[in-house]
Design a protein around this nucleic acid. Structure first.
Lengths: 268, 268
DNA sequence: CAGTGGTCTAGACCACCCT
DNA sequence: GGGTGGTCTAGACCACTGA
């Protein structure tokens, strides 16, 4: 019984203990726990599995990275709810009954909005400068806002616009407190996006209510106008709680718990 | 001298050592090293900074997660090259001079293709089943392929198609070895995608030439036909080396080293 | 073989939360 | 105060690489 796992562990380059623990914990979480429930504390778990606490923590680190667990200092380790689907606008005009107050949501936990934080001039970071085609360190106009879903801050966004063109674009200032639609800031067409993994720096971590170093999904959006990049937005989303959704249908409404619960990656 | 950092460390909830180390290393990497260069070994670095090796490793873990470092057992710790931009097709018809052989790339390191791995029936994982609207565990047709960029395997993809409709769709089998275009498999419109963070399981880790538990970007694509989901594809991309690009322009060609080197996330 | 990163241990102290 | 997760240590052994 259960010899399968142990046999695997014995031969062919022994599986690390922490990876084995992760497997066991995944099964336990999926079958015997429900979201919000607290797991036994780390010292107990380590003792129960007969490993050092550091080894157990290595397994928990994995599960937290996968968004299956949430660890809170002073509280305990909780089973996480499925990730919330966060629409990343895709040039889709806000449909009838614009989002923000939900127009027929599937869950109670709606409420998708942007919260204005601040704006002002700043010297363009290297990457942004090259993207905008301005000199490195040149002064650009920035707008900072937060993405709030279901009362939780899940992301941040900084919009960079060359100071020169500010006048023309600022007319319909996109990130002002007002508009809560998921549409593209600025009345521009031809966006292109890139998504990659990053970690939250100090200031950002505070905004996202996470410790520094927490994984985030970094979305870089280029807004093109007349063939040139008119603005760049850099957004970061909590990787633990967010599933970014793209495309025509995902462009408007927050999905929570809808659709697949977990990414699937076991063929055969 | 350097009192700034230490003063910060002293007051206001002392910054963890590993986070401070990360900051120092980031600066060193960006200024004094070039991609491919090897760092001093962990024991030396730890001694140099006056910390335990485990603490230093915590800092290196962060940097590896950010894609700034690559650690190879038996070799050393290398400075990573900027992430490669991997186009995620967006229903854009392959332009003239279809991708695959490059039609005017900006770098020599081109070569973007899919490599067929295998196909066959499989019982649908829960999440896929619900997405396709079939019974959990129902038999579905699967196609597995690898994304190869510049000779390196950077991603995997598993396509799930309900067995019932197989006949009709299979006519233009999309994932067969032949077609190397970045276009959507199946001649379907109305895709929608979701991106989230995951970790590579054992089999997948081998395909991606990474240890189990490595972070991956999981892309779930729904292919709609006549308002219903006709197929689901689950792709995973190495989070350390990939920057996923979306949109009209990013839809065809691999960017490497083009554009921004690093995501920018320091407004102020 | 020597050198590297990967894993694991046993223990300590700290920061935070709740009662 | 008592319990929790977060950080850090000093040391050990293993697995892999390359000469």
């Amino acid at each position: 019984m259960g010899t399968t796992a142990e046999a695997t562990r014995a031969m062919t380059a022994p599986e690390p203990k922490y990876w084995y623990l992760r497997t066991v914990l995944v099964r336990a979480i999926d079958s015997e726990f429900t979201p919000g429930q607290v797991l036994p504390n780390e010292r107990d778990l380590a003792a129960r599995f007969g490993v050092a606490r550091a080894t157990l923590r290595q397994a928990l680190d994995q599960l937290e990275l996968e968004g299956r667990l949430i660890r809170r200092r002073g509280i305990g380790t909780l089973v996480a709810a499925p990730r919330v689907g966060v629409p990343v606008a895709s040039s889709v005009p806000a449909g009838p009954s614009g989002p923000g107050e939900s127009g027929g949501g599937e869950e109670a936990a709606e409420g998708d909005s942007w919260r204005f934080v601040g704006s002002g001039p700043a010297s363009a970071p290297a990457a942004v400068a090259s993207e905008l085609g301005v000199a490195a360190g040149a002064s650009v106009h920035t707008v900072r806002r937060l993405r709030v879903v279901g009362g939780r801050t899940v992301g941040t966004e900084t919009l960079y616009v060359p100071s020169a063109q500010d006048g023309g674009l600022h007319a319909a200032d996109p990130a002002a407190p007002g508009p809560q639609d998921g549409r593209a800031p600025l009345g521009l067409a031809g966006e292109s996006r890139a998504v990659e993994l990053g970690v939250a720096e100090d200031a950002e971590a505070r905004l996202l209510e996470r410790p520094p170093g927490s994984p985030v999904l970094v979305v870089t959006t280029r807004y093109a106008s007349e063939g040139r990049t008119a603005a760049v937005a850099v957004s970061t989303y909590r990787a633990d709680t967010c599933r970014l959704t793209f495309g025509p249908d995902g462009g408007g409404r927050v999905e929570v718990g809808a659709g697949a619960d977990r990414p699937v990656r076991n063929a055969s």
